[in-house]
Design a protein around this nucleic acid. Structure first.
Lengths: 107, 107
DNA sequence: CTCATTCATAGCTGTCTGGCTATACGTTAA
DNA sequence: TTAACGTATAGCCAGACAGCTATGAATGAG
């Protein structure tokens, strides 16, 4: 059972990887070298994280000469937003149920 | 660097744990036994997950005799919502920047 | 052509953690 | 008190994975 939520949560769970994604969100397109400069880990590690982010659909890559430019694909966060509001929704529904119950008890 | 986002993402990254949380959101308060019945893992594992969910602030526990009732604390998802909208926000801002740039180029 | 640059891949390693069983602890029933 | 029940804890193990170095592959510079 490896649905969309799973991939998103797992991909964003790692601090280093999430930091890379955040930087792409804040500052836009970056090369692997630029990302490595502030990532605190080696270049191969950054490449690996970018690969996972790409597989999760969270980033896009664009090859230009010998550099690769990565950019955030914010739309990929949609399932996460959906999931969150769904959870909140269930909670509110149960709250409504409680209200109904209290009303029926009142009668 | 273990901020609130970190704990939330890491805690919700595990499918089994997330499923437990989802169930608490959908169906409200449950005992450990009731949760174990549908979790697909042993009771100690469920207890462990509940412990982590509790440490993350995602659930509350209530002791009643020899059973423990757990319930979801949806408000704890707030930082996640904030983070997501922040990421989306950065993206829109950069879009605005692009518009500004294009406008300036137009003049 | 040759060398430097930029990134990706391969292979290794230590750590983290989710699963298990066994067991301890507290509570209710007999 | 003793037994059964519901959870939590302890301890172990196997698999996953984030980090590293070394190297390959592709491109640009000289």
């Amino acid at each position: 059972m490896s649905d969309a939520h799973d991939v998103l949560f797992r991909t964003l769970a790692d601090p280093t990887r999430r930091a890379i994604f955040e930087r792409l969100c804040r500052e836009g397109e970056k090369t692997v070298g630029a990302l490595t400069a502030h990532a605190g880990v080696s270049q191969p590690v950054v490449s690996k994280h970018l690969g996972l982010l790409k597989r999760a659909g969270l980033v896009l890559d664009r090859h230009e000469g010998r550099q690769t430019h990565y950019s955030a694909k914010v739309a990929a966060l949609a399932p996460l937003v959906d999931w969150t509001s769904q959870m909140a929704g269930f909670w509110e529904n149960r709250f409504d149920d409680l209200e109904d119950l209290l009303q029926r008890m009142d009668q």
